[in-house]
Nucleic acid binder design. Structure first.
Lengths: 262, 262
DNA sequence: TCCAGATGTACGCTTTGCGTACAGGCTGAC
DNA sequence: GTCAGCCTGTACGCAAAGCGTACATCTGGA
């Protein structure tokens, strides 16, 4: 029925059920059954079955009237990612001390596809227009964390991210020329850290350094973010980058990383 | 086949698929197919189908060898809870300012069953032995946030939580006598806030105040947490509670709450 | 009162998803 | 080197799980 061939060994109901769960979003925080059916494209009885299932599992709740909403149990799904990645727990003290020493928000992020995902964070003040939290995704090519992660990523991955789709100019300052980005990546690789200024959002300024696992592979980026009003690239480089690199190295060490290879 | 009758309208595959996803935990961060089959009790081919499905959806990744792990995309499921609850976004500035003014961690939590779930948080230093993050759950009866949430919860809910199962003595100080807890709840209701000392963990001390929605219903608790080394109940009451209640009231106001009803 | 729009239910068909059984591959012990 | 014991991948036939159409029911507003 579906066009593709690879339908074998694919569990349709799981996909559909999660699709229903994810249909709850900012635009539809309390959808009705009919609304969900329309959003997902499934029949109303089907959506109803999924809702009943999700309700029994505790992820969804009917508010009496015909409206449904997500329960905080949904958050516990993400906990399993956190639990299974020792890095995140180990990073906590380093994030806290970095945030305290710099009086700025500190973040840890990972690459997923062509996006950077925040996996741990200590916010100090609001710097971005969007509310950054664990799980938030931003385009890799326009952020210091993305630059760090790409700088040491396997060439295949870098190519996928950079040429997979055209590099979007998120702000007027975003590097979008392929050669420029590649040159920047090799600069980052050489100096061991990255500073990006107003490429993701006007007024936003951040610095990142790589975190390595025991095999020396870069598995995460540690970042400190501020705004152009409070600091500037030069100050960041002088005052923050040493702290940042130090914190990243110590975090790497606690992951059992060998001393920096290159 | 399953003993219960209510199997109708229940989508087994959704339940099973999520069960597989949740089988990844601290004890099994990189399970093999066979391991997952054993953990979940499903047949290996079944587990394989779920893994393939989850992999295509981007939640799970095979690490080349026969081991699987969760991807950060799992975190984005929780984002949908955050997105659909305006409260959480609105709370951010209040959490930040509370954390700054008290130099202590600030948290926002909600009741789910007999547990309190952290839904937003600004950590300042590590206070608990476990790493508290958004999604973390703690028993309601032993925490200041739980006391606040129960103090204004419908009697049915309170009864379920308090009599559903015996109140566990998490520490030697935990209130476990039903009458004591009920008395404490009415005290909380009268004074408008709660302080709990070393009932959840030795050395841990926290204060909470209720957050109300526009209908006046208490929908969350705002908390400030510290350790007995850094403060004590009396100091907390004098210095922190006013700030806390003020922040909670302003957050309530931004939710459009009417003035406090009682 | 009646209509519009919603949710709940029944039911028969299809195909999805199931597990058994077998093939193939890797690793380590002897 | 070879065999045993583990694993993952695949085939296949069967049962039932999940499907959507069609209809009943309820609610609120005109």
């Amino acid at each position: 029925m579906a066009s593709d061939d690879g339908d074998r060994d694919y569990v349709q109901s799981l996909d559909r059920g999660i699709t229903v769960l994810l249909a709850f979003d900012a635009e539809h925080p309390e959808p009705s059954l009919a609304e969900l059916a329309q959003l997902t494209g499934f029949s109303r009885p089907a959506v109803r079955r999924f809702l009943i299932t999700l309700e029994r599992m505790g992820y969804v709740r009917s508010n009496g009237a015909g409206r449904w909403s997500l329960t905080p149990r949904v958050l516990s799904i993400g906990q399993h990612y956190t639990e299974t990645h020792a890095l995140i727990e180990l990073a906590q003290p380093h994030l806290l001390s970095l945030a305290e020493r710099t009086s700025e928000s500190a973040s840890l992020a990972t690459l997923d596809g062509d996006e950077v995902v925040y996996v741990a964070r200590v916010p100090v003040r609001r710097i971005m227009s969007i509310n950054v939290s664990v799980g938030t995704r931003v385009p890799a090519h326009a952020t210091s964390m993305g630059r760090v992660l790409l700088a040491w990523a396997p060439p295949v991955v870098v190519d996928e991210v950079l040429t997979g789709r055209p590099l979007r100019a998120v702000t007027p300052n975003t590097l979008t020329d392929l050669d420029d980005v590649r040159a920047e990546l090799s600069r980052v690789r050489a100096q061991g850290w990255s500073i990006v200024s107003e490429e993701l959002e006007i007024g936003l300024l951040s610095a990142s350094a790589p975190v390595r696992d025991r095999s020396g592979e870069v598995v995460a980026a540690l970042a400190s973010s501020t705004s152009v009003g409070r600091s500037d690239a030069e100050t960041l480089r002088r005052d923050v980058v040493p702290l940042l690199v130090d914190a990243a190295d110590r975090l790497s060490a606690s992951l059992g990383a060998a001393e920096r290879v290159s």
